[in-house]
Design a protein around this nucleic acid. Structure first.
Lengths: 230, 230
DNA sequence: AAGTGGTCTAGACCACGTT
DNA sequence: ACGTGGTCTAGACCACTTC
């Protein structure tokens, strides 16, 4: 009996859950018991179960023990690569075009989302990412110059804000909102589609500590699919 | 010097990356070196770095060492709860209504997506989830009776297919596609909106081993936001 | 009070990939 | 060949929560 890896244990635990040997809501044996059964160290059991708990398959609480999740909140992981990488990965040619760059007071809905004082001047950049020459996503971005002191030196004419920021700004966190919206006049013009077309839109905020670095709205050309697996 | 936890190490590593002490693409010290520096066991360093690698912050390869990721593929985790839970969590009253149930040959696009032979009879269920009495999401689902033998006994008149399947079918995996689509005639009728309205749509496949259990298209009422954080 | 998971240690061997 | 991360062990102490 050698090589009782944590992966082996995960597989067996999943099998028991799938085949209803361990039913939803039911408690499963403790780490110590499982270590005896699988003839391995408790740390190995711990790693196996800890990872399963992270995916929502089981619930663990001290003293209360480990249970098969009644409501397996399926956790899906979205990979959000840089647009250029995403396009090149499909074997298409990436293109980039800056449409506008201004330092202007931001509208209220933007300053609210960014937790900034109203009418604060922000760097506003609009640009377009292309795949094989066709519009792929229209980017409308606001950048807080107070959080990115050297942003005015950035060559957004040739480098997309996302790539420049990734290389030049430390990031501590962010959030993403995914919606479907009818194309605005601006979306329609940039993507070359009729106004009102159903668009997949991602809005992303990025923080460093408590400061908002940037807020970006990405409007994807019709037909875009965001995929993930469980 | 006690209590050098893996979280402490993660925080310090992130600080060094954020402050450019360790720059993108640059190699960082080995686990052994870091264990000496932080005065802790290598296993502790390993756990700290392994978790950071899972989030895409750093890249690790045997022999090659650990590097600050050049292209930090941001991994966002989507929580996909049952619709009832999602609605109740907002303090709204959940409602459910089955609209149709048939055992009929599936259209080709469905059988293709499900890896089944064309025209195979499948259980087709349409239903509506409501929040405070208003349509929240329209569900159009196909279920493979060969993978779910007792599906014809399921009381879909009162229990949503998702909840019944979760309790009665072992699941091994699946995938999700998120898109924006104009409302079809069917979407419009079910959700009480004009045809062509931009809708957020999730299509989900669920497998047990190599068999497809179910394919579902979820069309969310306008205004729906799927949120996540990094 | 007691049981369970959470974490840490010191050491070991192995797998992989660079050299 | 050799250095790095990947994993496992046996033991320990701690933190939390239920009883």
């Amino acid at each position: 009996m050698s090589h009782t890896s944590y992966r082996t244990i995960q597989t067996e635990v999943l099998r028991r859950i799938r085949t209803r040997v361990w039913q939803p809501g039911q408690i499963i044996p403790s780490e110590v018991d499982l270590a005896v059964e699988f003839n391995c160290a408790r740390a190995t059991i711990n790693r196996a179960l800890r990872e399963l708990a992270e995916t929502g398959i089981i619930d663990r609480r001290r003293k209360a023990g480990t249970r098969v999740s009644l409501n397996p909140v399926r956790k899906a992981t979205l990979d959000i690569p840089m647009t250029r990488i995403e396009i090149e990965a499909r074997g298409l040619t990436y293109g980039y075009k800056m449409l506008a760059k201004n330092n202007i007071p931001a509208p209220e809905d933007v300053t609210v989302r960014m937790n900034l004082v109203p009418l604060q001047p922000l760097l506003h950049v609009k640009c377009l990412h292309l795949a094989d020459g066709k519009p792929h996503v229209f980017e409308d971005r606001w950048i807080n110059p107070n959080a990115v002191s050297n942003v005015f030196t950035a060559p957004f004419e040739t480098v997309s804000p996302n790539e420049w920021l990734l290389q030049n700004v430390p990031i501590s966190g962010g959030d993403i909102v995914l919606t479907a919206e009818p194309a605005t006049v601006g979306d329609a013009a940039a993507l070359g589609i009729p106004k009102g077309t159903a668009l997949f839109v991602a809005e992303r905020r990025t923080f460093i500590g408590t400061d908002t670095i940037t807020f970006v709205r990405l409007a994807y050309a019709p037909g875009y699919r965001m995929t993930t697996h469980i």
